[in-house]
Design a protein around this nucleic acid. Sequence first.
DNA 1: GTCTATAGCGAGATAGAC
DNA 2: GTCTATCTCGCTATAGAC
Lengths: 206, 206
Amino acid sequence: MSGNAPKKKGEASRRILRAAEELFAAKGFAAVSVRDIAQLAEVNKALVFYYYENKATLLRKVLEQYYTSHAEALSPADPTTSLREQVHALLTSYLDFIEDNSRYIHIVQHELLANGENVGMIREGMNLLFSRVQEVLADMAGDGPLHVRHFFLSFSGLVVAYFTYAPALDEIWDGDPLSASNRRERREHLHWVIDQLLSGMEANQA
Amino acid sequence: MSGNAPKKKGEASRRILRAAEELFAAKGFAAVSVRDIAQLAEVNKALVFYYYENKATLLRKVLEQYYTSHAEALSPADPTTSLREQVHALLTSYLDFIEDNSRYIHIVQHELLANGENVGMIREGMNLLFSRVQEVLADMAGDGPLHVRHFFLSFSGLVVAYFTYAPALDEIWDGDPLSASNRRERREHLHWVIDQLLSGMEANQA
DNA sequence: GTCTATAGCGAGATAGAC
DNA sequence: GTCTATCTCGCTATAGAC
């Protein structure tokens, strides 16, 4: 017998990609070895190089995959609703995407910190998201400190902080910050924050 | 002649620590080799192991150093001013610290993402900062989605996002997001945001 | 398409001269 | 305290059998 794993044939390539994604998110590109990836994917190490030219290519494929699903997840604004509702809808869809793809953030943050070749792909993703925020917020936002780009960045920071800092928050939160009920509460907080900011922008326009 | 560098004797240990700090912040712990550190510090590789037992110890020392200066940078609240002013003062001192120690964030984020042994030290730093925020905000904040911990995390995210995302923002910003004038503008934005949130909290109390 | 075997290199760390 | 030289290991990547 060669093994007891329920592997389906032809799937090896996908298993490798999934394993790479999981490990890159957990430990970062540099801290992961191809051996780790092969082990988790339950394939031979050499097979990784057969499907993906090298370790760096593997990371690029992981990022490309996310880039695609991120772009797809951005549903277009519904012009029949109020701007305020459109902003909330955008926040909701962003949170949905991130909860479904929490590893995405980790990989992106790793790459941002490494500040290497892959920042280009991340920049494209940011630009895309920014243009969506701009569509919705352009009329409300102002200039200088109230420019759309600041709100875009602030929204991103507000959303992402929760996932970045979670491992160090368990004493401040009661128990696991990432539990379902705590995630729900955090969502409510973010929608509340958005409301305050929108009110401030409206007041500023008048 | 053995070299042309203006090295002062006895300083090697500090040069190593500084080099390690710089490289860990730029590329992350795993992506940095002891050889890199020695080269930047202009010392022999073996000397790194003479002063610091191993690579992991070096990172711990870097974190300890930051932990200390972070704690020192948190000036106590001035009870003769309004709560609103105290919050703004806290934000200002946090921003000052971070601008003076911008590498600190990068190292902390790397460690959070790695989620390894050093998260304990970071947790202590977060707890300390949280208790300061709580002092100032306890009376104003509420429960559930308006609990102090949410505001604490939101403030952190708002501040930190700017530095995390900077490498991918250059197309959205006009030129370098980290230029002096852009940093100033970002500060103004953050104070504006804080003001909106404080107003929202006051309204909620009534 | 998947494996074994191994080349070749750079890493962390140590021994010991000065 | 600082260096040279070296050990050992694990890494990426390749060659080639099946």
